[in-house]
Design a protein around this nucleic acid. Structure first.
Length: 324
DNA sequence: ATGCAGGACAGAT
DNA sequence: ATCTGTCCTGCA
């Protein structure tokens, strides 16, 4: 299958969006991920020769009776899910015309050409990823999330290898928080050094308890599907009550997990960039940056944040701002 | 080796 | 309402 849309897959994958860690690259250079669809779990393989199109191949699980499903409707489902995750229906050319109206933003187009939103395949994975990303580096939170995925996800066998679903809120809520808790629960029947079946062993640090509490809330109180039905403000007020979720993480969850494109996640980098471009380098609060971004960019706020961040990163603007 | 980067939060103003 | 110190880990 093929999608004729402008997209830079590599850039989109590596841009640090907190929906999920980057997909796994195989020997052929394809980006692979397990998707759970109504018809069946499928292993997706994406590749591209140039930024004008995206090629899709897929595999079904081993030991699956292929007479049980309809190939046509499965492929239709796969396509609409890929269009959704990579936001392929978003009109990038129109967005670029919008950026061109601001002389400070024009350069971002050539640095970020084909960069798209990378939306969650699973909102809960995005919630946990976003909590993990707080006060953390991209490299570290993606490794932690991958470990959580294979330690407590359900394994599914494909011809190309084995992949794991992301654990459910219920499963994650029951995982030990740290090695000591695990050690006690096992009545000391093992060395504490061997206790790695716990959240902290994934390198999440003090975020372990936030993740456990959050998992419990989504098991017993909150259905994340309700968030999709809300308006942005209500969704923000709901999600910011989650432990480990402040304004920045809430906006990441709303943007990458639920597709609220009017969200403008304001971290220190966005703050430095906005301050440098629009406030003469003056020190402004994260809240003011958020208000400014949402007001200036409207429904393009999420994309503007993405483009500003990577433009600054690639153009060397960030290095310049760090040295101040 | 110590110091620092990165948001949320509790406690204080 | 706004500020300060603390939380954990990986990397200079």
């Amino acid at each position: 299958m093929k999608f004729n849309k402008l997209i830079n897959l590599e850039l989109t994958q590596s841009s640090g969006q907190t929906s999920q860690p980057p997909w796994v690259i195989n020997e052929e250079g394809e980006y692979q991920s397990l998707l759970i669809l109504k018809e069946s779990p499928v292993l997706i393989k994406l590749s591209q020769k140039n930024f004008k199109s995206l090629n899709l191949d897929y595999e079904l699980p081993l030991n699956l009776d292929s007479s049980l499903f309809n190939k046509k409707s499965l492929e239709k489902e796969i396509c609409s899910e890929i269009v959704r995750i990579y936001n392929l229906d978003f009109d990038l050319d129109k967005f670029y015309k919008f950026l061109m109206m601001d002389s400070k933003l024009i350069d971002s187009i050539k640095f970020c050409n084909g960069l798209r939103l990378f939306l969650a395949k699973n909102p809960f994975e995005c919630i946990i990823s976003s909590i993990c990303s707080a006060n953390n580096s991209i490299n570290r939170w993606t490794k932690s999330i991958s470990q959580i995925n294979y330690k407590w996800g359900k394994e599914i066998l494909f011809p190309s290898g084995n992949f794991f679903t992301f654990p459910t809120p219920s499963t994650l809520s029951k995982v030990y928080e740290n090695d000591l808790e695990e050690y006690e629960a096992l009545n000391h029947h093992t060395e504490i050094e061997c206790c790695v079946n716990n959240l902290k062993s994934c390198g999440v640090g003090y975020r372990a308890k936030y993740m456990k509490k959050t998992s419990d809330i989504f098991t017993n109180q909150l259905n994340y599907n309700d968030i999709f039905k809300m308006k942005y403000d209500e969704a923000f007020q709901t999600i910011i009550k989650i432990p480990g979720v402040g304004p920045k993480v809430a906006d990441c969850i709303l943007l990458y997990g639920f597709g609220f494109k009017e969200a403008f996640p304001s971290d220190v980098w966005i703050k430095r960039i906005i301050s440098n471009l629009y406030f003469n380098g003056e020190d402004i609060s994260a809240n003011k940056v958020r208000d400014f971004g949402m007001d200036k960019f409207g429904d393009y706020a999420g994309y503007a944040q993405l483009y500003l961040f990577h433009y600054a990163r690639k153009s060397g603007l960030m290095d310049k701002l760090t040295k101040i």
